[in-house]
Nucleic acid binder design. Sequence first.
DNA 1: GTGGGTGGGTTTGATTTTCCAACTCACGGG
DNA 2: CCCGTGAGTTGGAAAATCAAACCCACCCAC
Lengths: 157, 157
Amino acid sequence: MAAPKDPRPCSIADTLAVVGEKYSLLVLREVCLGNGRFDQLARNIGAPRDILATRLRRLVEAGVLTRRAYSEHPQRFDYRPTAAGLELEPVLMALKEWGDHHLRHHTDLPMTMEHSCGHELVPVVTCRACGSPVHHDDLTAHPQTPGWTVKGPVATS
Amino acid sequence: MAAPKDPRPCSIADTLAVVGEKYSLLVLREVCLGNGRFDQLARNIGAPRDILATRLRRLVEAGVLTRRAYSEHPQRFDYRPTAAGLELEPVLMALKEWGDHHLRHHTDLPMTMEHSCGHELVPVVTCRACGSPVHHDDLTAHPQTPGWTVKGPVATS
DNA sequence: GTGGGTGGGTTTGATTTTCCAACTCACGGG
DNA sequence: CCCGTGAGTTGGAAAATCAAACCCACCCAC
């Protein structure tokens, strides 16, 4: 029977268990922008302060952020991304690109990103092996867990 | 005053308002894998059926999924990604890559993706203009909305 | 036709989270 | 002394989630 109610094992789900709660990715956004103090976070994100405190504890515990004192007497802290936290930036870039495109049609963007090459950043996901941009139709999923299958490629329609 | 409690305007937040609720991105995962039926979704995701129904309505309404009958008498439906839905795959790839790396250290992965070039997919975010992989330190944020600033690049630890 | 199974949900009621405002504590400035 | 700021904590009301049960239409086997 293999416990028929367990969901599919999946790194996407596991990652969302870490950063998928409401506000968590917005905390990461602000922290990556350099705004790491509690009041700034509360204002810039629009999150209730108690929830923000809970999220910050979780993200520190998960190794995504670090909390460091920038002043003793009075004790004051700010939050910064760890190396692991910075490696979540692709998630933020992908979310931003989708919103810029589908929600704003690339007009009146509230923020743009400049890449060090001098151009505005348009993030493109490529295959590390061959270097070409990745499209849905070029992918084949290979589940490794017995009992979990996929139906295979899907027409968009 | 400009309403001092409003959060920073941001495409990331706007995108999360569409797909950021619990289970939404897992629905998209399953649908992109070709598992688009209600019972399959409920089983593979592990979501309560009422919440799943709510999420599916939202995602269809937002233009991320379409609902189509694959049988009349009895009426039976399945859900598929729209073009806009497929363009959220970079988000899923980024989440999967982070989980594969930081939660599983690239061992015993529950699923792998094969790219059409024949290699296992390792997604890399690159700059469309110059083609090179994007790193945090290569980015400069330019807020376009008056009153919203950033502190600039951040040291990691 | 009767009984069981499947697919796609909706309903019900208990449990958890979220939300918001107010409160605290420790300073620092005028 | 009084006010403001930073970083939270506390309390109670409102909303979302959860699990299980229910519903309806159909199919199949007996």
